[in-house]
Design a protein around this nucleic acid. Structure first.
Lengths: 194, 194, 194, 194
DNA sequence: GATGAATGAGAGTTCATTCAT
DNA sequence: TATGAATGAACTCTCATTCAT
């Protein structure tokens, strides 16, 4: 799934950086070409269109997330620890690659094009489903409080993660997202614990 | 504060609708002019530039929020009820004007231009401060649990509200944001209650 | 000849300043209106068109020059003194009104429109004729050398005056045009003296 | 120094013609594109901006002048002959390329943009310095009269050349600039000779 | 694989001018 | 006399994309 050549990965990488730098408006074929150091038509050797590039960015995110989820599934830890792992791993990977943070929660950028909007939507559902099921299991085995539907709990957690990242980005990455993420997670842990 | 002529309000209104329809890329002078039924240069009689229009949209939001906060302040109800009022009133006003929901939480659209980014940031701070102080008071007089810092609690609440609205929008407004908002609020209320 | 109302003179004055400030491109109806503090359509109460304004500026120059020539004619001084007077009076009036210097020798600005080009041409001829005749008289009565045709002598004088003003303007009025004018005139006087 | 591609030279050439035809206002990207027979965006493959084109026109002049000066320097003729050569060569090259005459002494066109104004200024200085030094040498070795400072003499010569060209242009190129140039030079030669 | 040259479509903006009030 | 609102035409410039080499 998502099998990119070196040049393609280079283009995807550079595109993420460009979007991070100046929003979707900064992502032009010219800018990508200049950043990489090739000509504009050369881009079209590697992607059919600009939308194709955006779609690949999203696929790249998707496959990252799937990998993460699989790794966590295989671990032998409590459900609440698994959710914590998802929460903090996200923070960590943003800390390591800030441009990613700009793009990943900026659905508005993509909703213009139907095919992109659908991809975004399916990625969101993927995350929601993951958290949702972990919560459900956690409620069943007594780790997580039972008096609030798992549906709502998952949205509280996801919403908190998203806002943390958004705050970080809008503040120009001026605080340590890992520390802040841990603070927020501690709050959530206490809120949902039995 | 934010004193617009009829034409200006018309342009602001139409602009919000355009952004809602197709993102910031749909907001062109041509589209605004066509929607209203005047020529493109005519727009410039009422706003100096496109950025000026965007800035006015944000000012419009800001002054709406300030009004809401003032109204709530003057009510003689518990702090938790005040937060509830903010939460649900936002959902209500989005239900009544869905395009608003698209624009209000789409900071990414504006971060290109410094002056817009600053405005967005100050609006976010305004909301945060409001919730934060209500929580603090609620914690002091025993309405709200004390074991979690008010800072984190306010972000949990704001994050949840934001995600609710984002989900609604990305689902193409396919569910009743008021009902969903109430559900989410009930969850939060239980989470933060003492 | 050239009988302007107060408002018209105000518009002409402001127009000269605008051209001086940023070339002919700075002379827009909007800029004129803003400088004076009236609305754009109001300008059209006083002039039929923008070209009308430019034409009036030129008429204003023309009538200034004619006045100067008349005054000098009536004086009872040598021909060479009369030329000197024209030369230095021009420098003096530029020193007193620098924007004038920018406009007066910038024929290029006006040659687009036929009616303006003709006006410019006739003003130039007026000056040429004046100097030319004074030289001729000076040659006849032995004040001025005879071995060079008066035609060429007048162009040498006019060319020198023009370049002096142009240098002053391009240097951002950084030297004293009166002193420099006198220096240049002293050179010319020696060159043409018998 | 000033190394242009074929297309760039074509654009520069066409631009000079356009300016000659109708002043700087005639120099629009559209007009350039139409004259050459390519699309407007195509222009931007060869120049970054309109100002870039104007700057290149000036560079082209500058490098022409430098070439001329170098050629003259290497000749084994009297200083007065060298000045004559500059004077008449200029007239000749204008005769061969009249549009050039319109642009080269129309500093007003360029003073809007700082970078252009500086270029113009440096070109003027280049010419001044050239004539100035030749005069100085001529005065030293007794070719040129000593009773007038070389500074003023150079401005008299340059001013005369400029006015000759200006008259020619404003008369719609209706006389033979070479003949007229020779007449003017003869007058100057006599004026400055010892 | 890559490039230089080109293009149709369209962006934001400014212009001189008109007209109803 | 003056103005607010409007407009057609034109401006510089950028976009994603194509094609011959």
């Amino acid at each position: 799934m998502a099998d990119f050549t070196n040049r393609q990965m280079e283009i995807i990488d550079e595109s993420i950086k460009l979007i991070a730098k100046g929003g979707i408006q900064e992502l032009t074929i010219k800018n990508i070409a200049n950043s990489i150091g090739i000509s504009e038509p050369a881009i079209y050797r590697h992607f059919n269109s600009k939308i194709d590039i955006l779609l690949s960015i999203l696929s790249f995110f998707e496959s990252n997330a799937k990998n993460l989820f699989q790794k966590i599934h295989s671990k032998n830890i409590s459900n609440i620890k698994k959710i914590e792992s998802i929460f903090l791993t996200h923070c960590k990977s943003f800390a390591e690659n800030p441009p990613l943070a700009t793009v990943i929660f900026s659905e508005e950028m993509f909703i213009n094009e139907k095919v992109l909007a659908e991809k975004i939507f399916s990625i969101m559902k993927l995350h929601k489903k993951e958290i949702f099921e972990l919560i459900k299991k956690g409620q069943k085995n007594g780790e997580i409080r039972n008096d609030i539907p798992s549906e709502q709990l998952s949205f509280v957690i996801l919403g908190t993660l998203r806002l943390t990242v958004t705050r970080w980005r809008l503040s120009n990455f001026s605080f340590d997202i890992r520390k802040e993420g841990r603070k927020m997670w501690n709050a959530i842990k206490r809120l949902i614990a039995k």
